[in-house]
Nucleic acid binder design. Structure first.
Lengths: 223, 223
DNA sequence: GTCTATAACACGATAGAC
DNA sequence: GTCTATCGTGTTATAGAC
């Protein structure tokens, strides 16, 4: 019978490799960091690194997971604090940007992989399904915990729409070269009231039909 | 004095390399096609291929340029034929998808580079400035040639907004694995009436302010 | 199952000769 | 402008040790 310690050791090695990789990525950039350097710095062999991670790209998944955890924690605080829809949305999106900002310098290199349809890293892939579901769940909690009075069908789809909106913010952020990503924060602060206004308007007669139609489109083109 | 033929030869070699590369990309995919294979098939040395194109990635630019030309031609036909805003938009977007569909199999590999902020291939880069301006110009002609009665400030920004919308369609298309990209066509057909309706509504009192605010946001966060 | 050590491979890219 | 030779990289293979 093997000790439970064995599994612990394995996890330890895996974690060591990830930490080392992320540190080197941060210090020298993604492309300048070689698998040989990661292995050497972590004190393992190249073969061992490949035993745990099928490719250099796969190391990025660990970074995504870390980001997601961090964002989740930040969101819980926001959603406990705020009651209304707009401040909740603002807080969640600000938290999203906050967690990403420290990695802005090399996020672009990572983002490249997320953009590839065939990559498991892309947020629409089946492999990203659980991560995506977790992210959408935040927006569902955001919506459900607020006193938003809108069409139930629209309310059902709103979390996914908000997640898409957040992906748009991320897309802008990746390309934002302003100091401290000031412009991304500006984009969030200026668009949240707009989104809020449009959501509110969806109740008005004459706009219900637009909202309904929007729901129909989403359901038809969703994978 | 060198003959003008010399410059012609250079252009000839360059064109030969591009043609060969695009053909091989199409036949075997982007990643399976090596620079060695391109050079060999074109009858030049690897070093010579790199003399004309700084990287394998750079060969993709030629493909983009080709797509853009094709789309421009298709759009002229549409814009001569249609007068109203909605059919013009529908025609232009359908043409956009039409020109891309034959390349769907390997477009994803290309798209990856377009997503990288540091790449000259990305549509928001300064190197893409002229191509982007040409693309936005199509939407400007689309708007100006139609009898659309909207706020002048909003009208000024609408072409860029429509271009962004078209980029969203492209983004969806890249990930669309339905036969013949049926779902992308569906997305276009279902969202164009929605966009049209929202643009029309921007005239109504109570929505003018939203449209104005949107214009303000765009101007503030634009690079 | 976890790990080392080293060699080898194919590729993108570059150097330097002609 | 064009070539050949070479480099550095991600990745794989081999051949084992514990």
């Amino acid at each position: 019978m093997s000790e439970p310690r064995t599994a612990g050791k394995s996890e330890q090695t895996r974690a060591l490799i990830v930490e080392t990789a992320l540190r080197l990525f941060r210090e020298n950039g993604y492309e300048a960091t070689t698998m040989r350097a990661i292995a050497k710095e972590a004190g393992v062999s190249v073969g061992n690194a490949y035993y745990y991670f099928g490719s250099k790209e796969e190391l990025i998944q660990a970074y995504y997971d870390e980001l997601q955890d961090e964002h989740n924690r930040a969101c819980q605080a926001v959603l406990e604090r705020e009651q209304d829809f707009a401040p909740r949305l603002l807080g969640v999106l600000r938290a999203r940007v906050d967690t990403m900002v420290p990695y802005h310098a090399f996020a672009g290199k990572f983002f490249k992989f997320a953009a590839e349809p065939t990559s498991p890293l892309n947020p629409f892939s089946s492999e990203s399904g659980p991560a995506r579901a977790a992210a959408v769940a935040i927006y569902r909690e955001l919506v459900n915990g607020s006193s938003l009075k809108i069409d139930p069908e629209f309310r059902e789809e709103l979390p996914e729409l908000l997640w898409l909106y957040s992906m748009g913010i991320v897309l802008y952020w990746v390309h934002d070269s302003s100091e401290g990503c000031r412009k991304t924060y500006l984009l969030v602060e200026r668009t949240v009231p707009l989104v809020n206004k449009m959501v509110m308007m969806s109740r008005l007669p004459g706009f219900k039909s637009v909202a309904r139609e929007l729901v129909g489109v989403i359901r038809d083109v969703r994978d």
